[in-house]
Simulated assay, not measured.
Amino acid sequence: MSFDQEQYTRTFSSFSGADIVATFNGRLIGELQAITYSVVREVAPIYTMGSPDPRSFSRGKRGISGSLIFTMFDRDALMEEMKKSYEGAPDLMTFQQYQWNVGAQENQILSGLQAAKSTGGYGIETWDEQMTKLGYGAVSGQQGYSADGLTGFYTPEYADQLMPFNIAITGANEFGQRMGMELYGIQILNSGSGFSVDDVVAATAYTFVARKIKGVERKANLRTSGQSSANTAAGESYQIV
């Protein structure tokens, strides 16, 4: 009795979450637990006199949104990875901010207002005066006002301060089958997390909007094409007969 092995080895391609990884601007974040996305478009009916039924439908604006869920270990995975800088790569994740709203400058405002409050001069005029002093003294060693010295670039403290980034989703299973898709221009809207005695695993969730989605595409099967992976051990090779 002959055994037809081909009918069992030829099959449809399918991928589970265990076969998929996601890279954020080229940074692979292993804590990603789930990613969802949806595409919504406005469609409005067009009516005319003499008929209760729509004559046509007008297609309007499109919106792309979704969510990201990360398992939380001992860090905020998305924030920590996106703030990293790599040799030869542009520092894209820094954001522009007024200097007095960041770090030591912010403390100067609070300490200055506290001192003014003790002398009875606390109020909006004191606030303006303190802000003006910080504005004039923003550039070290320079006299007078300088608009260039009012702002600087800083690493983000909150996820909504991250610059737009892309997400590439790649799937590869044990049979050599591969697929990929991309989401472009991701901007974070909301973030949330929490802890409970009833939760064994802590997670952080984000919602986002995107500019464009490139749908799932099949990639070349390394096994059937006779190619070998770059991770194949030295000296190992195979040939499709």
Rank of each mutant, 00 (worst) to 15 (best):
M1Y: 08
M1E: 09
S2Y: 08
F3P: 01
Q7R: 05
Q7M: 03
T9D: 02
R10K: 10
F12N: 14
S13K: 04
S13M: 04
I20S: 04
V21W: 04
N25A: 09
G26L: 07
I29E: 06
I29R: 04
Q33E: 13
Q33R: 10
I35K: 08
Y37P: 01
Y37Q: 15
R41T: 08
A44Q: 10
A44G: 03
I46M: 12
S51R: 05
P52D: 14
D53P: 04
P54T: 11
R55C: 02
S56C: 07
S58A: 11
S58W: 06
G60A: 03
G63A: 12
G63K: 13
I64S: 11
L68A: 03
I69Q: 04
I69F: 02
F70G: 01
F70Y: 07
F70R: 00
T71H: 07
F73G: 09
D74V: 02
D76A: 11
D76Q: 10
A77C: 04
E80R: 07
S85H: 05
G88W: 08
P90Q: 10
L92T: 09
M93I: 07
T94W: 06
T94C: 14
T94L: 12
F95S: 14
G103W: 06
N107K: 12
Q108S: 10
I109Q: 05
L110Y: 13
L110T: 11
S111R: 12
Q114N: 11
Q114H: 15
K117R: 14
S118L: 15
T119L: 13
T126L: 13
K133G: 04
K133T: 11
G135C: 00
G135A: 02
G137M: 06
G141T: 01
Q142D: 06
G144D: 03
Y145Q: 01
A147H: 11
T151S: 14
T155L: 12
P156M: 09
E157Y: 04
D160L: 05
D160M: 06
Q161P: 00
Q161D: 05
F165A: 02
F175I: 14
F175W: 14
G180E: 09
G180M: 07
M181Y: 00
E182I: 05
L183R: 01
L183P: 03
Y184C: 07
Y184A: 07
Y184H: 05
I186H: 02
I188W: 06
L189E: 06
L189S: 02
N190C: 00
N190G: 00
D199C: 06
V201K: 08
V201W: 02
A202G: 13
A202F: 13
I213Y: 12
I213V: 15
V216Q: 08
E217Q: 08
A220S: 03
A220W: 04
A220M: 09
N221E: 03
N221C: 11
S229F: 07
A230D: 14
T232W: 11
A234S: 08
A234Q: 08
G235Q: 01
Y238C: 05
Q239V: 15
I240T: 12
V241C: 08
